[in-house]
Each structure stands twice: as structure tokens, then as C-alpha cells.
Amino acid sequence: MNKITVEGIRQNMDEIIERWIKTMKEEKGERFFHFMPDHLIEKTSREFAELMTSNIDESDAASTEKINDFTEKVVRFGWAIKFVNKAIDNFSDIVFELLEEKHIINDANFKSFNQLFKNWINPLRESIIDAYSTEWERTVSLQKIALQELSASLIPVFEKISVMPLVGTIDTERAKLIMENLLEGVVSQRAEVVLLDITGVPVVDTMVAHHIIQAADAVRLVGAKCMLVGIRPEIAQTIVALGINLHEFTTKSTLQKGMQAALGLTNRAIVEVEEQ
């Protein structure tokens, strides 16, 4: 940026900040400043203004280093991206307006100033958007991992009997994981009966049903029996309406009933013992 502009901005910094705070407070639908005590607004705003202007004394293109620094610090404010965007907009508008008032910008040099502003603001904005979207992508992928960790372990309950409680939405990826864990677990736990508990599955559509049927088939191939338990009444009705045939495997409404049946299949039962 040219020298006169930089000096113009530096000299009028207090005025710029004051106007900027006023504009931001008037922004409709943005309640950010409302929860902040005044001295904090003042402090944060000054920081923001300093960050905004930190790359303007660079001769031509702003240095990547300064822009990264700006982004890192602004992201740390914890503002919504919409607010940051507005903050940048308002800031550059106010600077422009003030420089016009001080006759630093006039009709003759208006065009070149426009370009100057673009070179100043655009890299900042792009960097901010980049940082936010990277952060979102990271969050989403972390949540995906969290969901995977949550899913599908086969639990040995009694000798020869294991349970897999399914909780949450089953997508293609999870269905694969369920199948893997199921087969691996059946073999390593020497299970003879496996109870698949779908109490926690919100929707059983044809895709989920198909995966369950395939899993049961695979379990049968490794020499065990698969039982479907935890079928809520409304799920039972939708399964019937979909015309899905579950006749080939045992189904029970609750895990408890399934467990009793599983004990029966392995020639055992739970008996009550009278106290002596």
C-alpha cells in the first residue's frame, strides 16, 4: 500500500475503531457484542483492527506469514464466520469512508485505491474462509471416527452366546464394520448363538434389512446361529409392510426373550434358586 494511505489509516485508527464498533453493534441479527462487557468489546476491537491493518504496510502483496497470523488469531476469537465476514466488510468500508473524508481518496485516484483495497482485503477473507472450512472438515472427520468407535462390538455374555447391540444409523460404511466385527467375534469367542440387538436403530429400511440378512447368512456359514432381537412394534410393522422376509431367522421383541431362547438353544436355562 502507498505511504499516504498507511499513514492516513494509522493516524485515524481510534476514529476507525470507534465507528467500526458502532456499526457492528447496529448489525441486525448478530448478537455477538450483546453478551460482551464494554471494556472487552473495546479490547477485542482494537486487536481486530490491529490485525486487519497488520499487512497494509507491505509494499505490494501481503505476506503469507502475516495473513496466516491474522487468520490464526481471528479464528481464536471464536466468532461465527458470518460475523467475521461482516467485520471485515465493515472495517474496509469504514476505512474507505474515512480516507474519503480526509480527502486522501478522491475522484482522481479512486480507481487505484479500489485495487489497493482489493489486494488488502481479499487475501484476508480467503484465508479466513479456508481456515474455517478446514476446521469444519476436521470436526466432521473426527465425528465420523467417534461414530465408528461407537459402533458394533460383539460382546460375549455367556459361554457360546454373544450379543451385538446396534445403536444409531447404519450407513454402508458401518454395515461393513458390523459384518467384520460380527464374523471375527463369532470365531474368536466361539459363539454358537449371536443376538443382534436393533433396539437402538432408529430406522430399519430395506438397506438395513438387507445387511442384517447378509450378516445372518454369513454367521450361519461360520457355524453359528443369528437371532434378531429388540424389534420395536413399529419396526415390526414397517418390516412387514416392506415385505421383507425374516422367516429364516429367529426374531424376538426383546433382548431378554432372545437370551432365554439362546440359552434354550444351547441346552441351558436360567433357574431360580430357593434360599435354604
Binding site: P202, E234, I235, Q237, L242
Partner: peptide
């Protein structure tokens, strides 16, 4: 009710998939 909610939700799931 719960049963019809499940029916509607399942139908949407099928169509969306």
C-alpha cells in the same frame, strides 16, 4: 403416532436412497 411416524420415515428413507 409412533407407528405412522416410522412408516413415513421409512418411506422417505427408501425414496431418498
Amino acid at each position: 403416532g409412533t407407528v405412522d411416524q416410522a412408516r413415513i420415515t421409512t418411506a422417505i428413507s427408501e425414496l431418498a436412497r
